[in-house]
């Protein structure tokens, strides 16, 4: 198993590429539930993000996307634990940092845009106070200055009538407004790196488009790098520079966005795209063989083997490594789809 988890970190380093903002190397996170075997949510995930780059992480529910984002932020939810690996942010391994230090960086140097922001904001504090709190804590500014910054930030995320919204409470905001507030908080301290965890999934399509446009502008203006987590391959296609497909806690394919959508190589990537294509015939083509009983998984082979249409005997025996197939393109499959 360990052998199969080749780190992309080293392989991906092209000699000309600038030093990455974030480098995740062989990250493993497991949830320890009392009386049961630990559940490995991330099984040796590796990737790197260059300055100003947007990496899209796409996968179905339970693929480990949220665990990945929380692990990078240093707040793995309760029974979860980082088992091994490295999360190197501007050269510092975040996993080795003291809590105090990590807390100070979180929200300042790297920040996160959450989904369902109306449920995430403190219901008893006005918006202004919640934004200003972050400014006061991270930038050490006085309350009046923090308020000014909050107002400026609300303007830059294009909230209409920002003076009035400053006094509003979370329950008085629409979903789109609350999303903008959360973006304002995330970008307030001009972080080098932002994670968006399914941030626009709860919004209707028009608002989603506006928010994405806004995010893209803000990110491009400030040269921020981004990890964009989503289930929506369409959004990822339009928004990200590179795509990584996650399946059961592993990255199974990683490629520049254009190359990826021109021809996904992993069978799972193809199924994922087919699912979004609303084409039953296409979906059928990539779904597991009907009528055939699902083969028994040995735990040694490819994690996708039981659902795969291209599986061979070897897939059950040997776990595939994430291997380069072209420049900056990786796939974790013994029999990738060739184009």
């Amino acid at each position: 198993m360990a052998l199969a988890q080749g780190g992309v970190g080293t392989e991906a380093a092209a000699p000309t590429s600038p030093a990455p903002i974030l480098e995740v190397d062989d990250l493993e996170v497991a949830y320890h539930v009392y009386g049961a075997a630990p559940v490995r949510a991330l099984k040796g995930v590796s990737f790197r993000i260059a300055p100003g780059e947007i990496l899209g992480v796409v996968g179905e529910s339970g693929a480990g996307k949220t665990t990945l984002s929380r692990a990078i932020m240093g707040v793995v939810p309760a029974p979860g634990r980082i088992e091994r690996g490295r999360i190197s942010f501007l050269g510092t391994n975040l996993i080795e940092l003291e809590d105090v230090e990590l807390t100070a960086r979180r929200g300042r140097d790297l920040s996160m845009i959450v989904a369902n922001p109306r449920g995430e904001l403190n219901p008893l504090l006005p918006i202004a106070k919640q934004i200003a709190n972050v400014a006061q804590v991270h930038l050490g500014v006085a309350p009046p200055r923090a308020r000014e910054m909050a107002l400026d930030m609300l303007r830059s995320v294009a909230i209409p009538d920002p003076e009035r919204r400053m006094r509003a409470y979370p329950h008085e905001l629409s979903g789109g407004m609350a999303q903008r507030v959360v973006i304002a908080i995330a970008l307030l301290c001009k972080p080098k790196f932002v994670i968006s965890d399914d941030a626009t999934s709860g919004l209707d399509v028009t608002v989603q488009a506006q928010i994405l446009e806004l995010l893209r502008t803000l990110v491009r203006e400030k040269g921020t790098s981004m990890l964009y987590i989503t289930r929506d391959t369409g959004v990822a296609a339009n928004f990200c520079d590179r795509i990584a497909i996650m399946h059961q806690g592993e990255i199974v394919e990683e490629a520049p966005t254009g190359d990826f959508f021109a021809g996904p190589e992993h069978p799972y990537s193809n199924l994922l795209l087919a699912a979004f294509a609303h084409d039953p015939a296409l979906r059928q083509r990539w779904s597991a063989v009907a009528g055939e009983a699902a083969p028994e998984m040995t735990g040694l082979g490819c994690l996708y083997a039981d659902r795969c249409v291209r599986r061979e005997e070897r897939c059950f025996r040997e776990h595939p490594a994430l291997r380069p197939v072209q420049a900056a393109r990786f796939v974790r499959c013994h029999f990738p789809v060739e184009r």
Binding site: T103, M112, E120, P123, L124, L125, N133, I185
Partner: peptide, 26 residues
């Protein structure tokens, strides 16, 4: 303290003392 808004405040890097104060008010 386990609610979404407390988790979010921690995500924003607010010190635990402040998170606690806000939780208490809620």
């Amino acid at each position: 303290l386990q609610s979404d808004f407390s988790e979010y405040e921690r995500l924003c890097g607010l010190p635990e003392r402040l998170v606690m104060r806000h939780a208490l008010r809620n």
